[in-house]
Design a protein around this nucleic acid. Structure first.
Length: 917
RNA sequence: GGGCCUAUAGCUCAGCUGUGGUUAGAGCGCGCGCCUGAUAAGCGCGAGGUCACAGGUUCGACUCCUGUUAGGCCCA
């Protein structure tokens, strides 16, 4: 038997089936680097409408994790898709470099080595630390095929950035938006410093817990008429009692007034029995119960200080321990502080840097607060105010350095006022103007802005932008003149923040004298700004002429935690400096979850590092995974899921490979036929592709990348692989290489290969480039797929008609395939080409099939189709009796007609003559 | 404890929004089979869902309302 394989046009391409991404991707990255692909793209889009995504700076600490990778890839998909859509879409990545976490890490290292350094040296170490991680993270981001100005990113520790931050502060100071006020912070009396949340170490310790009665002197007249009436409070920090300024209840809880002896005690009803028992007053009777709200006009007398304070209602009262009435000292607790603000209570914090009581509490002046505990307890006992004393074990914060217990102490901090110039109202107005994706993001940030307190913008640390201010050496008056601030700004622009620290106060003061006392000797402020203030200023520092970027940005895209963080604080800074929002659209994505839907945490041991995924699967697979899920909710990741994404990747890649394989001898300039000359089937395929393209464009535009993923995958699997490509194999392989039937199919394949590469380029940029490179050369096309633009799609009336017609034919095809399967199961046929299909139909259905009769065998991939008019629609399958053409494997009557070529069908004989074999 | 959000086949998603209404769809995976001229590929058929749970509104709910459970982010 003659082997005709050599006479066929079988697919041939250098495009490998095996992606081998981990190994091959770096080659593409190197090529892009070499040709400066980002520069070329920007050059190609020069003058086009700008679409600006402004990068939220990740923190330069540690290697990137999957959440960081997810965020960066989403941004890159946006940038690349906007570029494909014809926009000039610049991307300037940045890093958040200052702040407590880096300083903390550096201090930890120093401590381990036993080194003690000056602040300036610590900052130098911090700078080096940040630089190191910027470099490491940058390599990881580049490896993910993210395009941007990696050689000139923005860093919050750049002098010009730092100066911009100061400029923002200056504008706020000038407009009277900043003020100083007391606020409690975690304080270490031994290190004499404030501590950040991350610097706290919680340890279980025994604390003195006192239950104290406070005598009611106003309100509750009806009860007081029956005997002395007391509110019962409970606290584990007796030393804060001198600073007690209120007692808090929950308006909705039930409280009981219980008489024991001749006194009446008020406790939350649920906690009454336990409290009375502990107080040694088991014999009591409830004389009244009421809601906490009824206590709002009650006032009580401090047990040992001449002071009458109010009862307030708050939402932090718990019924889990204590008495349901909470001792409030606004100078010594966060809850207490905010409650105090709400009720206009003063901030009393009579404790100095060393943790000693000041002269505001003469009885204990000079005593360490913890040492005062016992004395205060004793005093309460003597006064009869102590109902119970215990020493329970509980978790209490300690200093990470010296291990001493911490105290909450009010210190002077800087605030940005939310009401000055109606900042809050302005923020809410701007929020309404922006577009929030998903929509509920707006509700979320509105809720936060509505209820947020004034922004505390100061920190007592080293690694950050200083709050420039001068205090009079003699009277401590604050000096914050605009000229002074401008001078510092200029200095920092030149020398960075070290300029401020280095310069003597008098130099910065430049001869200014104290307005209050006339003094000319000054002390520099040593506070620094909250890092959120810095990152919140990024739009000012980056969206400017220096970077060639417009203000505001079109898009901010970060995790949903940034509603409280970057989105909100950027907005506040923008309103104070520019008067409007820094963004038009804000997109948020969810957080990483593991297989079980649990958050990914180092401590949970369920993290999958992006570096590992890149190494095992490749950046394109990681990116395809990003696109595979709806990022607006939380997204899961597991190796099993990655394997699924790999399957999708393979399907798309193999489809592309098939397209390319059949274009090996196709020169688009020479061989392409216009669609009007194509068979209807190919025009239908083109129409399907156009619809896909339109759908995909829309999905990118709506930032619904998972729609892109599913649409492309479905198209490759269903429209192409399972139908069009399968059907045209006969034409591609068996027709004459340059025959019109084959060239038409190739024209269509070329269009789709090229178009597909462009559609997927934003998601799998490396594979798209690989495909692009293996396309037949065409002078009219740019060298890189990323320099190309999407084609316009125009769905015509003809397309609609084709869709209608083929959907009916495909329905019949479905019935035929089912019948073929049954025949196969029955053992009468194997390959469908062994079959002859008999169709019965009536009316329209018959007309349609009859008109397509000559194409039906191809569409069904059977050797022959017999049509019968009339009767109910039916499909019958039987084995073909004709001989099999040894070249095209179809069983046709024409096989054997020619004695010279008895093993070929008529078509193959013709083709063989044509190709001279 | 509060605010916002999520919950449809083993997996990833459609359907649900301002218009509630025939047997809830797709792809992958899985099972069975075919092919060996996309071959560490390709094709076909098939089995999978009480739409988290419980109430309510309605002639009728995956779709609207309430609650519960689980999970997430941000606060406390």
């Amino acid at each position: 038997m003659t082997d005709y394989k050599d006479t066929l046009n079988l697919p041939k391409t250098a495009f490998p089936m095996k992606a081998d991404l981990a190994k091959r991707e770096p080659e593409f990255l190197a090529y892009w680097e070499k040709v400066d692909i980002y520069g070329k793209i920007r050059e190609a889009r020069r003058g086009r409408d700008v679409y600006l995504l402004h990068d939220g700076p990740p923190y330069a600490n540690g290697l990137i994790h999957m959440g960081t990778a997810l965020n960066k890839v989403l941004k890159d998909i946006v940038v690349k898709s906007k570029t494909m859509a014809g926009f000039d879409a610049p991307y300037v990545p940045g890093w958040d470099c200052h702040g407590q976490p880096i300083e903390h890490e550096v201090m930890k290292e120093l401590r381990a080595k036993g080194e003690e350094l000056e602040a300036a040296e610590v900052r130098a170490r911090c700078r080096a630390y940040a630089e190191k991680f910027v470099a490491l993270q940058r390599e990881d981001f580049k490896r993910l095929a993210v395009f941007g100005t990696w050689d000139t990113p923005y860093l919050t520790m750049h002098p010009h950035y730092e100066a911009t931050v100061l400029g923002a502060f200056r504008a706020m100071a000038r407009d009277g938006r900043v003020y100083r006020a007391l606020k409690p912070v975690h304080w270490c009396y031994s290190c004499e410093t404030a501590l950040a949340e991350a610097e706290l170490e919680y340890k279980d310790v025994k604390s003195p817990a006192v239950t104290v009665r406070l005598e009611v002197v106003e309100g509750l007249g009806e009860l007081r008429a029956q005997g002395p009436t007391y509110l019962v409070v409970w606290t584990t920090t007796p030393w804060t009692l001198p600073s007690n300024l209120a007692a808090a209840v929950d308006a909705g809880y039930d409280y009981a007034a219980a008489r024991a002896g001749d006194a009446i005690y008020i406790v939350a009803e649920d906690l009454l029995a336990g409290t009375m028992a502990a107080a040694g007053l088991p014999d009591y009777e409830i004389v009244k119960t009421f809601k906490g709200a009824e206590l709002t006009d009650v006032k009580y007398r401090h047990p040992f200080i001449e002071r009458v304070s109010p009862v307030i209602t708050t939402d932090f009262v718990t019924l889990e321990q204590g008495t349901g009435v909470v001792h409030v000292a606004p100078g010594h607790g966060a809850d207490d502080f905010y409650a105090g603000q709400q009720y206009g209570l003063p901030i009393l914090s009579p404790v100095d840097d060393r943790g000693l009581f000041t002269d505001e509490v003469p009885d204990y002046e000079g005593t360490l607060v913890f040492d005062a505990d016992a004395r205060i307890v004793e005093r309460l006992r003597e006064l009869g105010a102590l109902l119970n004393y215990e020493e329970p074990e509980h978790s209490y914060p300690h200093c990470w350095r010296c291990k001493n217990p911490l105290l909450f102490r009010a210190t002077k901090q800087w605030f940005l006022a939310m009401e000055a110039g109606d900042l809050r109202g302005a923020a809410l107005k701007e929020i309404a103007k922006a577009e929030w994706v998903p929509r509920w993001g707006e509700q979320r940030i509105v809720g936060m802005v509505e209820s947020r307190p004034d922004w505390c913008i100061s920190r007592q640390r080293s690694w950050g932008v200083p709050i420039p201010a001068l205090y009079c050496a003699s009277c401590d008056e604050l000096h914050l003149g605009d000229e002074f601030l401008a001078r510092v700004e200029e200095l920092v622009a030149k020398e960075g923040i070290e300029g401020y620290w280095r310069a003597p106060a008098e130099e910065l003061a430049a001869g200014a004298t104290c307005e209050k006392c006339g003094g000319s000797s000054w002390r520099k402020s040593e506070d620094i700004l909250d890092v959120w203030f810095e990152s919140g200023t990024s739009h000012l520092a980056v969206l400017n002429e220096c970077y060639g970027l417009p203000w505001p940005a079109d898009l901010y895209l970060e995790g949903s935690d940034q509603h409280r963080g970057w989105f909100q604080l950027s907005l506040l800074v923008a309103l104070c400096t520019k008067g409007s929002s820094p963004y038009r659209t804000v997109i948020t994505h969810g957080f990483m979850l593991d297989v079980d839907g649990k958050a990914m945490h180092k401590s949970a041991g369920n993290v999958i590092p992006p570096q590992e995924v890149v190494e095992k699967y490749g950046a394109d697979v990681l990116r395809l995974w990003v696109a595979s899920e709806d990022y607006r909710t939380d997204i899961g990741l597991s190796y099993r899921l990655l394997d699924q994404v790999v399957e999708t990747y393979r399907r798309v890649r193999n489809t592309a490979r098939f397209l390319l394989g059949n274009l090996g001898d196709f020169d688009p300039g020479r061989d392409a036929l216009p669609p009007e000359q194509w068979p209807e089937l190919d025009r239908f395929a083109r129409q399907r592709f156009k619809r896909l393209a339109r759908r995909v464009y829309r999905a990118y535009e709506r930032f619904e990348f998972h729609v892109v993923y599913h649409a492309v995958h479905n198209f490759c699997a269903v429209d192409l692989s399972a139908f069009y490509l399968d059907v045209i194999k006969d034409r591609l392989y068996c027709e004459a290489p340059d025959g019109p039937a084959r060239r038409a199919a190739q024209s269509c394949l070329y269009l789709m290969a090229r178009g597909l590469a462009k559609l997927v380029a934003p998601v799998i940029p490396l594979t798209a480039e690989d495909v692009w490179r293996h396309l037949p050369a065409d002078e009219r096309e740019p060298e890189s797929v990323h320099l190309a633009e999407w084609d316009e799609v125009d769905i015509t009336a003809e397309d609609d008609a084709l869709d209608e017609k083929f959907s009916r034919l495909l329905e019949t095809r479905g019935a035929v395939l089912k019948a073929l399967e049954e025949a196969r199961a029955a053992g009468s046929i194997g390959h469908p080409l062994e079959a002859v299909v008999a169709l019965a139909a009536d009316g329209d259905a018959y007309e349609l099939l009859a008109a397509e009769a000559e194409n039906l065998p191809a569409y069904f991939i059977t050797s022959q189709v017999e049509l019968e008019r009339g009767g109910a629609a039916a499909v019958a399958v039987e084995a073909a009796s004709d001989e099999k053409c040894q070249r095209c494997w179809q069983r046709l009557p024409s096989v054997g007609e020619d004695p010279d070529r008895p093993d070929l069908c008529e078509r193959c004989r013709r083709v063989m003559r044509r190709i001279g074999k």
